[in-house]
Write a protein that binds this DNA or RNA. Structure first.
Lengths: 189, 189
DNA sequence: GTCTATAGAATGATAGAC
DNA sequence: GTCTATCATTCTATAGAC
C-alpha cells in the first residue's frame, strides 16, 4: 500500500496524487485508506519514513566508526545503493516539493537528515561543504530517474555514481571495495 | 503571469497547482487565465518553453563552433548560469514528473533537448556518456534549490557547480574564463 | 481581456453498516 | 478492515455580459 502510494507519487507528484488514485490502484475504496492514514500528511510521512529507515543501519554503523574516511566511503556506497535500487523513492525524497517541505518541518526527519549529513561530511559543516554535499546528493537522486539514465542497468549506474561522488567528495577511487573492475566511462584516458 | 505559475509550480508541484491558485496570486479570476491558455498543458508548455528559450542562443553558439571542447565549456557555463539565476525553473524542468513527461512527449522539446545533449557531449552519445551527462545536469538543477545550498549566494554557488561539473566531465578547471579566483572549497589542500 | 455565473466532476474527509 | 453513502469544498472548463 505504501508501495502503491510511492509509485503514484513518482508518476504524478505527491501533491497531485489523490486517495482515489491509490484506492483504485489497490482495488479498494478511499475509506480503507483513510482508516490507516487519517490525513494525507500522515500518508506522506509514512512513505518517507519507510524509505529513510532503509538508511538507518548504515548511518549508525558510520557513527560507531567515528565517521572517519572509511566510514564515509561505506555510507556513501549505501546511499548510492539505496538510490539505484529504489530510484523513484530517492527522487521523491530529494525533489518533490511536498516531501521536501515535510522533511524540513517534521522534527524526526530534521534530526535524521542532520545525522546523515554529519556522517557524510565527517562532521565538517560549513557553507562550502554543505553545497558539496548538496551536489553529490542531487547528482545521485536525480540521475537514477533521469531519462538519460533510466535505461542503465543497476550495476553500471551504481558504478558511475560512486565514481562521480568520490570525485566530488575528494575520496580515493576504486580503493578497497569489491573487485577492482574497470568501469565503462568512454572518455577516461 | 508565467512567472506566477512558475513560482507556484515550484511551491506545490505542477500537478498540484490549480488555475485558481495562479489567479489568486495575480489578483484576477480563473477565466482570465483560461483565455490565454485553453488547457493546463498549454500553460505548462508555455512555462517550459519560456525557460528553455533562455538557453537557445547558447546552444546555437556552441553548434556554430562545432561543439569542440571550448564550446562545451562555454555552454556548460551558460547552463550553470541559468540554473543559478533561475533556480526554481531549473528544478522544475529537470525533476517535476509532469514537466519531465511533457518534455519527453512534446516533439519540439525532444529536438531541443537532443541538441543540448549533443552540444554538451561534443556529439558523443553512448550509455556511459549519457549517464555522465545525467549526473552533471542533475547535480546542477538539484543543488540550486537544495536546502543545503538554498542560502548560498549566486556567485559562490556558480563557482562550486562549475568546478564540480568540470570534474565530472573531465574538463580542465579554472582555465580561460574570468579571473582565476580561488574557490572556497574547504577540503581542497 | 476581464468579469460573473455556472456545469459537472473530483477532491479530502467522515459516519455508520457489515 | 472494508464497504456504501454522504458532506462541503475545490477543481477544470465553458458561456456570455461588459
Amino acid at each position: 500500500m505504501l508501495g502503491a502510494a510511492l509509485d503514484l507519487f513518482a508518476e504524478h507528484g505527491v501533491g497531485a496524487t489523490s486517495y482515489q488514485m491509490i484506492a483504485d490502484r489497490l482495488g479498494v475504496t478511499k475509506a480503507a485508506i483513510y482508516h490507516k492514514f487519517k490525513t494525507k500528511e500522515d500518508l506522506v510521512i509514512a512513505v518517507a519514513d519507510m524509505e529513510l529507515a532503509k538508511l538507518q543501519d548504515a548511518i549508525e554503523e558510520a557513527e560507531e566508526q567515528g565517521c572517519d574516511t572509511q566510514a564515509r566511503e561505506l555510507l556513501l556506497a549505501r546511499v548510492v545503493d539505496h538510490a539505484v535500487e529504489h530510484r523513484r523513492a530517492a527522487h521523491i525524497l530529494q525533489f518533490d516539493p511536498v516531501v521536501v517541505r515535510l522533511l524540513s518541518e517534521h522534527r524526526p526527519f530534521q534530526l535524521f537528515l542532520e545525522r546523515l549529513y554529519r556522517a557524510l561530511t565527517s562532521g565538517q559543516r560549513d557553507p562550502g561543504t554543505d553545497v558539496q554535499l548538496a551536489i553529490v546528493l542531487s547528482a545521485i537522486s536525480g540521475t537514477v530517474t533521469h531519462p538519460l539514465a533510466a535505461q542503465r542497468d543497476d550495476r553500471a549506474l551504481r558504478s558511475q555514481l560512486l565514481h562521480g561522488a568520490r570525485l566530488l567528495l575528494d575520496l580515493p577511487d576504486s580503493g578497497k571495495r569489491r573487485r577492482p573492475r574497470r568501469v565503462s566511462r568512454p572518455q577516461a584516458s
